[in-house]
Simulated scan of single mutants.
Amino acid sequence: MRELRRLAAVLCLGVLTSFAATAQILIGQTTGLTGPAAAGANENVLGAKLWFDRVNASGGIGGRRIELVTLDDRFEPARAAENALRLIMVRQVTALFLNRGTPHTEAIRPMLAQYQVPLVAPSTGAMLLHKPVDPWIFNVRAPYQREAEKLVHHLASIGMSRIGLAHVDDSFGADAAAGATRGFEHAKLKPVFVETFDRARPVFSALVQKAKAGDVQAVVFIGTAEAVSEGTQALRAAGSRAQIGTLSNNASSGFVKAMGEHASGTIVAQVFPSERALSTSMVREASELARAAGINELTPAMIEGFAGARVLVEGLRRAGPNPTRQSLRQALEGFQRVDLGGLEISYGPADHSGLDYTELSIISDGRFRR
């Protein structure tokens, strides 16, 4: 934090020109456009821009365009903190939006209260962002713990009793593992093994040995798309045919591509309706906008970005003719059963959790099937 304070002091010198009179409403985003989570992060951004572009084409918010300023943090928490500080202090953004990763959000979090900046739709389901309520964080997606618990329950319900748990050794992995543990307890099972791996340099030799020795039927794999695909390849190379299940952070076409020949049959938790559920008006509208933009097919990660953008835009519309950080927070806390297009979201001073939607999908023919 000393380094960040020094950086803040330097950046303050640059805040001599007021951005208040800008013709845009500036929204800041730091996310891993490159690095191990790049597939999902880029699809998040693409989905959000579908809605921002639609709103801007219709006159913006009170005649002001929404400008999304996105900085690449390479999925590194320290860089995410540096980017967030630049966005807050130099670009003077009205809000931060759709950052990715649990440790990354933890790194940003102290600045939200310090500079009174709302963070809308963080792309993480960490329970620590839900309880206790952080007055400056507005979640949209359901918690990872709920996904992990549901995944274990499903595996047990289809007769699997030899299930291993592998998770990245960071706050994201520990958080999701807590949900998986509840799933095991409710199913009256114990995991065959619980194996952790390093976020920056994952090694899966011990995981493979334990999976083979325990003849596991399934592995609940909590990590980035890159880590889960590498771990799955290691298991398959060793002859294990264990069912792979993972969380919604890997609900992207990039994950399917990374898994390659091993993608088919992988179970992936989801926190939004299917990207092909055209009976849901939000999905139908996203599909129409994507087609008009030359995007052939939506992905779950795009739907997440699209839903987050809808929440942010509605908050800005309700925040008055010249939205500020404080008025945006107050507007969001006033949400009561706001319709996002087939999904309703509510907030209040004691509840910033957002949606409660979770279900499972399976990859087949390169698509997520529900």
Rank of each mutant, 00 (worst) to 15 (best):
P135V: 05
A121R: 09
S123P: 00
A113H: 14
G101W: 02
I158M: 15
G125N: 08
A121Y: 08
N42I: 05
F75H: 07
A80V: 03
L128R: 14
R182L: 10
L71F: 10
A126T: 06
A142E: 04
W51Q: 02
L96D: 01
A113G: 14
N83S: 05
G62D: 02
D170H: 09
N139E: 04
G60Y: 13
G59P: 13
G125K: 05
T105A: 03
L71Y: 07
A177G: 10
H154W: 07
P77M: 06
L50P: 13
D73H: 04
E76K: 14
I108R: 03
G59A: 13
G47D: 02
W136V: 01
R65T: 15
S58M: 14
R79H: 09
V93G: 00
E82L: 06
P132Y: 14
A126N: 04
A156D: 12
D134A: 13
A81K: 00
Q116D: 15
T102L: 10
E67R: 13
I108H: 01
E43Y: 05
R64Y: 11
A84Q: 03
P103T: 06
G159T: 10
S161C: 12
P103K: 05
H167F: 14
Q114I: 12
E67T: 15
H154I: 04
N83W: 01
A156Y: 05
E106R: 12
N56P: 10
H104R: 09
L85D: 00
G60T: 08
F97Q: 09
A113L: 13
A174D: 13
S123I: 14
G47R: 07
V93S: 00
L165C: 09
D72M: 07
T181P: 03
E147R: 10
E76W: 03
Q116G: 12
A148M: 07
A107W: 01
R91E: 15
G159V: 08
